[in-house]
Amino acid sequence: MANATATELKLKAIQIRQDLLRLIHDAKMGHTGGSLSNTDVLTALYYGVMRHDPARPKWEDRDRFIASKGHSVESLWCILADLGYFPKAELSTYCQFGTRLIGHPNNKVPGIEMNTGALGHGLSVSVGMALAAKKDNRPYRVFCIMGDGEQAEGSVWEAAMAGAHYRLDNLVGIIDRNRLQISGTTENVMGLDPLDSKWEAFGWNVVSIDGHDYDELLHTFESAPAQPGKPTLVIANTVKGKGVSFAENVPAWHHHVPNDAELAQAIEELTAAASALEATAAKGSGTNG
Rank of each mutant, 00 (worst) to 15 (best):
V73T: 10
V73G: 12
V73R: 02
E74D: 14
E74L: 04
S75M: 04
S75G: 13
L76Y: 10
L76W: 00
L76G: 04
W77D: 08
W77Q: 13
I79N: 00
I79P: 07
I79C: 08
L80Y: 04
A81Q: 08
A81H: 06
L83I: 05
G84M: 09
G84Q: 09
Y85A: 11
Y85E: 10
Y85V: 12
F86C: 06
P87T: 09
P87Q: 09
K88N: 08
E90F: 07
E90D: 15
L91N: 07
L91I: 03
T93P: 09
T93E: 09
Y94F: 15
Y94V: 06
Y94S: 14
C95V: 12
C95Y: 05
C95E: 04
C95N: 11
Q96W: 01
Q96E: 15
F97N: 13
G98Y: 00
G98L: 08
G98D: 07
T99S: 15
T99M: 13
L101S: 11
L101Q: 09
I102C: 02
I102H: 02
I102P: 03
I102T: 13
I102R: 06
I102L: 01
G103P: 01
G103N: 03
N106M: 05
N107H: 14
N107W: 06
K108I: 12
K108T: 15
K108C: 03
V109S: 02
V109L: 05
V109D: 14
I112H: 05
I112Y: 03
E113A: 12
M114C: 10
M114F: 15
N115S: 07
N115F: 08
G117N: 07
G117P: 02
L119Y: 02
G120L: 04
G120F: 05
G120W: 00
H121Y: 12
H121F: 01
G122I: 03
L123A: 00
L123E: 05
L123I: 11
S124Q: 11
S124G: 15
S124R: 12
S124D: 07
V125E: 00
V125A: 12
S126V: 06
V127W: 06
V127E: 12
V127L: 10
G128M: 00
G128T: 12
G128I: 11
G128D: 06
M129Y: 14
M129N: 07
M129I: 06
M129R: 03
A130S: 11
L131V: 03
A132K: 03
A133Q: 04
A133C: 01
K135Y: 15
D136V: 14
D136I: 11
N137T: 15
N137S: 13
R138D: 00
R138P: 02
P139N: 09
Y140A: 10
Y140F: 14
R141E: 03
R141S: 03
